[in-house]
Design a binder for these strands. Sequence first.
DNA 1: CTATGTGCAAATCCTTTGCAATCCA
DNA 2: TGGATTGCAAAGGATTTGCACATAG
Lengths: 147, 147
Amino acid sequence: MKRVIADVGERLRAGEYKLTPRREHILKVLLENKDKHLSAEDVYNLVKQKAPDIGLATVYRTLELFLDFDIIHSIDFGDGCKRYEFGNSEEGEQHRHHHLICNRCGRIIEVNEDLLEDLEKRVSREHDFTVTDHQLKIFGLCRDCVK
Amino acid sequence: MKRVIADVGERLRAGEYKLTPRREHILKVLLENKDKHLSAEDVYNLVKQKAPDIGLATVYRTLELFLDFDIIHSIDFGDGCKRYEFGNSEEGEQHRHHHLICNRCGRIIEVNEDLLEDLEKRVSREHDFTVTDHQLKIFGLCRDCVK
DNA sequence: CTATGTGCAAATCCTTTGCAATCCA
DNA sequence: TGGATTGCAAAGGATTTGCACATAG
């Protein structure tokens, strides 16, 4: 984790930005919740525990900054707000994972394999489109809700 | 098109709703723009040409209604508003098509083949998840923007 | 006639922005 | 010191809601 923070700091500095204490707190919260899908408000509430005087606007601004630097990704599950997750791009895994979304309980299950390579190749050939990323949501019913 | 309207009317009535003139206008606009991805505001402006005194709220309420009845689908391309498209579920094609989104010019290209069957089977087996639908967005650069 | 549908305006929700104060290199 | 960063409050944009009136069946 320290490694990641240092890395992010370096990346930001390379772009003329600073990794301020505020931003570091936000980054930590994101790292500590890698598996969750936090909204800006969620992040705000979590960061407030460490830095009670932080403003919501700062959270938004920082998330925007992290997005620009591809440090995090945002997804929209259609619940009215964007959600953010730490992007594991350090592992050389360019593509993000996919999500199974339960229509009934709203549970979100992550699928970590990337199964779209063939499809992408085909699509990019047929449509003359240079693929850089993709996002797949699969809707349905989870184990518990099928019953 | 008449056929579709009649069909929608029947479906609504079966659910205790009416296909009022207002709703029919909205439906027509959606049908006439099958290939586009209209926002609520877009629909509003188009319907106003036929029924100038329609209210934006009615458009929202009707779109919501159509969504409930699976008459249309909504997608979010991340431009700040939901976009709607007529769902071709009549043709027995349960799954909707996919979208290639150009990161540069914002162009959206539709891919009509459904290439995810295998993937879905695998995922549903591995995660004990009953798939009902999916949504795939592929990001990248279109032909013109690659240059 | 009665429930449903509608227009309008106000309210809401998430997010962004302006600005003065603060911080850090 | 000077530009970047921040908190606060206000603004913004999309969507929803309350309510009185209109309408369909």
